[in-house]
């Protein structure tokens, strides 16, 4: 276990270094942020002074070395636009974004997996087909369209739910629904297929033949074996979930991390962008590690040593 985690940490470090370097290079290849930071009509002398002030006059290699030496000291730099530590800028926004991703993940797993099992059990019955039909709809409707539909019904017409911001638990209902619809639908289908594969296996017939209670057969023998591909899918969907959150945060005016990253990309705010991509990359790498650990938990054949 310790060896597994060490190797994993080593690979994680290399991945993050590669990502940070690619982002560092890519942001600078697209041009300078100076046009966004300073007003139009700057004379050459003031322009040069400003470029030096932001530290953008130094050769890219110097900037790269400075970036890393600061990074290793735990200094992530100041955002160009706001001139505040990027860690502070993110801290203000990360909580609500992480909570949205968390509630979405909970809803996705909490609804998607049980529904998947049930539709597998209800195969050939009207109820099962109905759930699948709804799942297909959830899969097919783009999340922003669904979000706007929710806004139209629950805020614009019924005035039941608040439309903008993330101040109260009620603010989470529509964004979570809009963001999780696609993933719930996907998970229902994956879980159902995985369950159907498993249900036809010999050991399932054996389990039934032993006279075990149906819930023991379905959960212990069925679901546990079906979960491996399902966990893989959840891990893979994490990045899609993060990019989906960018859109949903915009529709519901969340001022979250997604909104911050889009703004930083448009204005070429290098420090914010570099830090933001690192944070997202870390999150994805950590989730993938958790997925590996989950494999071991559900499948004793997988060894972490």
């Amino acid at each position: 276990m310790a060896g597994f985690l060490l190797r994993k940490a080593g690979r994680m470090a290399i991945t993050l270094w590669v990502i940070a370097t690619v982002v560092f290079a890519a942001t600078r290849l697209t041009g300078t942020p100076i046009d966004f930071l300073m007003p139009e009509g700057l004379d050459a002398a003031s322009r040069a002074e400003m470029i030096a002030y932001w530290g953008l006059d130094r050769p890219v290699w110097d900037q790269y070395v400075a970036y890393w030496s600061a990074l290793l000291r735990g200094d992530f730099g100041l955002g160009f636009m706001e001139r505040r530590p990027v860690s502070t800028i993110f801290a203000e926004r990360l909580g609500q974004s992480a909570t949205l991703l968390g509630t979405t993940l909970l809803v996705t797993i909490g609804v998607g997996v049980p529904l998947g099992v049930l539709t597998a059990m209800w195969r050939g019955r009207a109820l099962g087909s109905a759930v699948l039909l709804v799942a297909f709809l959830g899969y097919a409707i783009p999340n922003f369209v669904f979000a706007i539909l929710l806004l139209l019904v629950f805020s614009f017409l019924l005035h039941w739910l608040p439309s903008a911001g993330s101040a109260t638990p009620l603010h989470y209902i529509m964004p979570t629904l809009a963001l999780s619809a696609y993933f719930v639908a996907a998970l229902v289908r994956y879980t159902r297929n995985a369950m159907l594969d498993v249900l036809g296996q010999d050991y399932m017939r054996t389990a039934w033949a032993k006279g075990l209670a149906p819930h023991v057969v379905m959960l212990k023998h069925g679901l546990r074996n079906a979960l491996i591909p399902v966990i893989t899918v959840i891990g893979l969907q994490m990045t899609t979930l993060v990019s989906g959150a960018v859109v949903i945060e915009t529709v519901f005016s969340w001022n979250g991390v997604g909104d911050l990253l889009v703004g930083a990309t448009l204005r070429r705010d290098y420090p914010v962008l570099q830090f933001g991509v690192l944070v997202v990359a870390c999150a994805v790498v950590v989730v993938n590690t958790l997925v590996d650990l989950a494999y071991a938990a559900v499948d004793p054949r997988v060894r972490l040593a």
Partner: peptide
Amino acid sequence: ITRIPELSSRITALKNGEV
């Protein structure tokens, strides 16, 4: 004063009594 960048969100927030 709160930033609500999307036009449709601003209009909804006004109609909904949030601003």
